[in-house]
């Protein structure tokens, strides 16, 4: 009479466990490193895209109003006719009101305020024209005070644009 062979015991041996764990650890190490790298890359992409969108919005807001403005008050070209830049811009809009765009470095915003060309107090717009802008400069370079260029930058991203005022005073 033959004895039936013993059924093999269910389970894993210690060696198999160790090998399996080691393989898993290597795979997890590679995958998690890759995920962290990609997360950082993705965060950088999001930052750049947000900055781009902020620049587009700020540029367009300023261009629309400046195009109909009547004259640039500040900055103006220097006495030796060289160009002059400032972090604030003052101009008269279509209605003759005095408007200023200025860069707030603490909040990284371009704000707008209205200084009435008449009775009434200064009104600062509650919402900024542009946000997330590390630096902004407005440059006057034309004799007739009708051309203003601007340069926005933040985190290695730049925007260079300009507006020619269509209405002379």
């Amino acid at each position: 009479m033959f004895q039936t062979s013993e059924r093999p015991k269910a389970g894993v041996t210690l060696v198999e466990l160790l090998i399996g764990t080691a393989i898993l650890a290597v795979i997890l190490g590679i995958v998690s490193r890759w995920f962290f790298m990609q997360r950082e890359y993705q965060q950088r992409l999001s930052r750049v895209s947000e900055i781009q969108e902020d620049f587009r919005r700020a540029s367009w807001n300023m261009i629309q109003e400046l195009q109909m403005a009547r004259v640039i008050i500040w900055p103006r070209i220097n006495a030796d006719k060289s160009l002059h830049s400032d972090t604030k811009l003052v101009f008269k809009d279509f209605n003759g009101q005095i408007i200023s765009y200025y860069h707030e470095s603490a909040t990284r915003q371009i704000r707008r305020c209205v200084i009435p060309n008449g009775p009434g107090g200064v009104v600062i717009n509650p919402r900024p024209i542009g946000e997330g802008i590390a630096s902004a400069s407005f440059t006057a370079s034309s004799f007739d005070n009708r051309l203003i260029s601007f340069h926005l930058s933040s985190g290695g991203v730049h925007a260079l644009d300009a507006v020619y005022l269509l209405n002379g005073d």
């Binding site: 008050i73 500040w74 972090t87 604030k88 200023s100 200025y102 860069h103 707030e104 704000r111 305020c113």
Partner: peptide, 21 residues
């Protein structure tokens, strides 16, 4: 006095230009 801080420093010069215009 009611201007934002960024405009206050140069306001007298700006007012001079506005007066000319």
């Amino acid at each position: 006095s009611s201007l934002p801080q960024e405009l206050k420093a140069d306001w007298s010069s700006i007012a001079g230009v506005l007066k000319e215009e």
